[in-house]
């Protein structure tokens, strides 16, 4: 069997005639009812969840309808800014696949007071600058606390929380 395809090396590829295009692809997405209120809360240093009376779940990200019960959700619940790590990673690569020396530490964090598995994506900070340090300092199940931007710098965005840091236990 003959398989078609002309494979180009990087050098050959660079010599090929190409057409370049950069579109002006910009969007302003409507946040809607649930997320607008949530973002407004962040601006004031509050984390708001939404509760469904039918299944009892306290949900974050908040939503105006419960996807499981398929009914409107019922109540806003203000959470604290402490959570536990469900999973984390130590990332040495940027969005364009270029490498970084100092890692980023994305994590799925369940905020205390929400229901099981109700995590959100965020980052960890103050846990070290090398893989070894981070692996030593971070464990799944560990408690963490939000580190906020200064109040006047907050703009009603998820980045109003800079990162989460481990809660130091006093014994």
């Amino acid at each position: 069997m003959k398989f078609e395809g002309i494979s180009l090396g990087l050098k050959e590829f660079e010599k090929e005639i190409k057409v370049e295009w950069k579109g002006k692809l910009e969007y302003e997405w409507d946040c809607g009812i649930a997320l607008s209120k949530f973002m407004e809360g962040l601006k004031h240093g509050k984390i708001l969840a939404r509760k469904c009376y039918a299944c009892g779940r306290i949900m974050i990200p908040p939503r105006m309808f419960c996807e499981r019960c398929f009914r409107p959700t019922d109540e806003w619940i203000e959470l604290g800014d402490e959570g536990e790590i469900l999973t984390f990673s130590v990332s040495f690569v940027n969005w364009d696949a270029s490498r970084r020396k100092k890692p980023e530490i994305p994590a799925v964090i369940r905020l205390l007071g929400t229901s099981e598995n109700m995590g959100i994506l965020h980052k960890l900070g103050e846990v070290g600058d090398t893989l070894e340090e981070v692996l030593k300092n971070v464990k799944i199940g560990m408690k963490v606390k939000a580190v906020w931007k200064k109040e006047k710098e907050r703009e009603g965005a998820i980045t109003d929380i800079l990162y989460f840091k481990p809660i130091k236990r006093r014994k």
Binding site: W29, D30, C31, G32, I33, A34, L35, R63, M64, F65, F70
Partner: peptide, 24 residues
């Protein structure tokens, strides 16, 4: 439609359609 997110807007249509069809 700044008052709703795409999710909330679709939910409205879905709720009406399911009610109309008499299904869940």
């Amino acid at each position: 439609s700044p008052e709703v997110s795409f999710r909330e807007m679709i939910y409205e249509a879905a709720e009406k359609a399911y009610l109309d069809a008499g299904i869940e």
